[in-house]
């Protein structure tokens, strides 16, 4: 891939929803706005998803039908409810990124 191709590939992703997994296990979902050579990625209107703690899972199980503070993430590998919250415009530094997914 030469620079020109690289730019056109990345440009093609602009405005699309990316899921970025960070080194601490969190996932960020938002609109791709910008990146650089170090993969410092800017996402707009993003949500933070975090694996719930063990007790939260239990609590959630106990509650069954009651759904709260949780958003169903319809990802193939994410089957539990992750707690999510709006965090807006963010930069995920390249060296903290473990995985990038395109929705």
């Amino acid at each position: 891939m030469d620079t020109e191709k690289a730019v056109s590939y990345l440009s093609g992703l602009l405005g699309r929803t990316l899921r970025i997994h960070a080194s601490d296990g969190r996932m960020f979902v938002g609109l791709f706005k910008c990146t650089d050579a170090d993969r410092n990625i800017i996402l707009a209107n993003s949500f933070e998803y975090r694996m719930p703690s063990a007790s939260t899972v239990q609590e959630a199980a106990a509650k069954e039908t009651e759904s709260w503070d949780e958003t169903q993430v319809k990802a193939t590998r994410v089957k539990v409810n992750m707690s999510s919250r709006l965090i807006g415009l963010i930069v995920v530094p390249g060296h903290h990124i473990t995985k990038i997914e395109l929705e």
């Binding site: 891939m1 030469d2 620079t3 191709k5 690289a6 730019v7 590939y9 990345l10 440009s11 992703l13 602009l14 405005g15 791709f32 706005k33 910008c34 990146t35 650089d36 050579a37 170090d38 993969r39 800017i42 390249g94 990124i97 473990t98 995985k99 990038i100 997914e101 395109l102």
Partner: peptide, 20 residues
């Protein structure tokens, strides 16, 4: 798209940005 993204980004110059 981790691999493709990472490779593409690595082709950018220092200071070069791809942005909306």
């Amino acid at each position: 798209i981790t691999a493709q993204f990472t490779e593409a980004a690595s082709k950018l110059q220092v200071g070069q940005l791809v942005k909306d």
